[in-house]
Design a protein around this nucleic acid. Structure first.
Lengths: 375, 375
DNA sequence: CCCTCGGACAGGACAGTTTCCATTCGATGA
DNA sequence: TCATCGAATGGAAACTGTCCTGTCCGAGGG
């Protein structure tokens, strides 16, 4: 039940601390590592020697400049593990390969075919691996970011995935066999939230909600620094939330936004276009109405979670910019007691794939080093 | 940043494991303790001798019955710390005193006065302490359970507290000075959830929602085994949630339930009475309507959190019993994708004070033993 | 009377700390 | 320009702290 408590445990604790430090801060000298992990000189030296013996760390040159001899620099050996991150959309299969330190080794993408989806998936990942000089079985872990969510009980992809050939199967098992590696599947919005948390607006924020109005609406919930997935993988799937006027999804999805725009005399072929048009022409009434609708649903989320921050992301939010964001914040203030700040998400360049990469790194590091996940 | 990693750390780890085990399982012999914490016989003997020296553990008699010599029984010394749990309602100040092992030492309650609330509070707690043979400053920690929630930023009690004399002050600081001890204030529904989690229907459930329709409605949210409080202390305050028909609170509070009952020809002086009456006369239509209203709000909570379980508690839910519970579950199934089970809460005897006691014990144990965890 | 179990002691293994020494190389001053 | 100093690196030996294995003794029950 409880930990063993033998001296061996100390080794593990210190080894993990050292590798974690080297991963977080990059290459450093033995003296710097001492400082961070709090071990003495001989202990740190032995630790590094042992990890080098095991191939876990490598020497990466000498540091010059200061007084005294040039200090040996140490870094985690990237070769001990590799990961793949895949962003799946109805249009594209987008793959990135990195080593365990997080260095990007290769990128490759291919259009999503009409059929033979699985085969195309495998070939695209394999091509990316080859570009990185790897075989598929060299991948420690693969994270696939996709619309919809996987129910852990069944492995089926639920919540309107729009991905032909990937429904009604146990997707994690299927992909695991297809690639011959450990695979996990994560909701795309969740991954975007992960990315905001590690290098966007939500750095250091332990409780926030990322709201994503696009073709489909959805959200990601982070509680105590951990992504909330839900028992059936459906946490944050607020499309079916009931607000005054009916289902939330029916009021802020693409069609609803276009319809709302039409009532304000704005003709547009998509919600994004309508918002962009309204913004450029200074049509505030439409944006206010839209903001009120968005805020109605957000208010319910804020009631339940009382988060530190609400982030708006996705194409519609980005089109609306700070203007829409401020309008939503003002409407939200009228509806709920907490004065939750609303901000635009920061990451715009492929947040899903970046988040998948972070997620894959966390899993692979746990596999290879036994590290519990950290950001 | 990272832990020191010296051999001394092992001591701490093992000491904590031993005390945690003794707290969880009660008195035991050295051999039994060995088994649980995984130390050898001499190490465990030394550990106990050292803890006895420090006054942390005591010998509690000998175990007989088996072969061989009678083994010494060891237990945590309850005298190293004491806690108080207070349940505050508009009617009553209800205090319990326990030692750090959780043994109840004294109970005492007094009616809530119209004014001089703070003085009455202090005197009631002090009386309880005296009954337990203690002075106020012997209390390691006091947890006060109350309607409403404390905003950590201001210390003010928000969300309709109904407690005269306790609003518009920095309540934690005020009470801390009043008692001269460490005090924390916790929402009553949150404490009820804590109690369900430690000895009710939610044992082992890491993600659930406790819904509490009574005079006021509210809920508690547990995520990853941790109570979610929210930045302003307002997590779970779903009273102001917007559902079709308006504010959730206006549709399922006491008055709304009576009004709804009236439309079904049921005259009652309270919501509880209306529900009880409907149940005894087999008036299903009213209960169905009520269940639908309740489920509408719950559906939104389930959308956001996708919990493993929804518990219904509070007087109205208890009056409705399994019948109402099943009706709510059925309605919920129509509204959301996840098939979240809905159950009646189990703890009916003063769940708030019991939860406060657990909470206070957790804090005091961390103070006294440095234990990071909750049992 | 013997077997079993609790308690205690001794020797050894493992991990890390302290202390000391040799080496290197920029900085300082003659 | 060159010698010297001092700071920083790398390594080795001796010591401390913690726990484990093995052994022994004595007290009870069967």
């Amino acid at each position: 039940m409880t930990r063993t408590g033998s001296p061996r445990l100390l080794r593990e604790i210190n080894d993990r601390a050292a590798i974690e430090t080297l991963l977080r801060s990059g290459a450093m000298t033995r003296a710097e590592l001492e400082e961070v992990i709090g071990l003495s000189k001989p202990a740190t030296a032995q630790l590094l020697a042992r990890l080098e013996e095991d191939g876990m760390v490598v020497r990466t040159g000498l540091r010059g400049g200061g007084r005294g001899p040039r200090a040996q620099m140490w870094a985690v050996n990237g070769g001990v593990g590799h990961v793949a991150a895949v962003a799946l959309t109805p249009e594209l299969i987008d793959v990135a390969i990195a080593d365990i330190t997080g260095s990007l080794l290769a990128e490759h993408s291919a259009p999503m075919p009409k059929d033979n989806t699985l085969r195309a998936f495998r070939e695209t990942v394999q091509k990316a691996a080859v570009l990185a000089g790897l075989r598929l079985d060299a991948l420690s872990h693969v994270v696939v970011g996709t619309p919809g969510a996987v129910d852990p009980a069944t492995g089926h992809l639920g919540f309107a995935p729009h991905l032909p050939g990937l429904v009604d199967v146990d997707l994690p098992s299927t992909l695991r066999e297809l690639l011959g590696t450990s695979v996990s599947i994560e909701n795309d919005i969740n991954l975007a939230a992960l990315e905001e948390m590690s290098s966007g607006k939500a750095v250091g924020v332990r409780n926030f909600v990322l709201f994503w109005p696009a073709d489909e609406i959805g959200s990601a919930v982070v509680v105590n620094g951990v992504l909330l997935r839900g028992v059936t993988g459906g946490a944050g799937e607020i499309d079916s939330m009931q607000i005054p006027g009916g289902r939330y999804g029916d009021q802020v999805d693409n069609e609803a936004i276009m319809a709302l725009a039409a009532t304000h005399g704005i003709a547009a072929s998509s919600g994004v276009e309508a918002v962009a048009h309204a913004l450029s022409t200074g049509e505030r009434a439409f944006l206010s109405d839209l903001a009120r609708r968005i805020a109605l649903g957000l208010a319910n989320v804020v009631c339940v979670l009382d988060p530190e921050l609400v982030l708006l992301s996705g194409s519609v939010a980005q089109a609306g910019g700070e203007t829409l964001c401020d309008l939503v914040a003002a409407e939200l203030l009228e509806l709920v007691v907490p004065r939750t700040p609303v901000q635009l998400a920061q990451i715009t360049a492929n947040p899903v794939r970046s988040g998948a990469l972070h997620s894959a790194l966390a899993v692979a590091r746990e596999q290879v080093f036994g590290l519990p996940q950290r950001s």
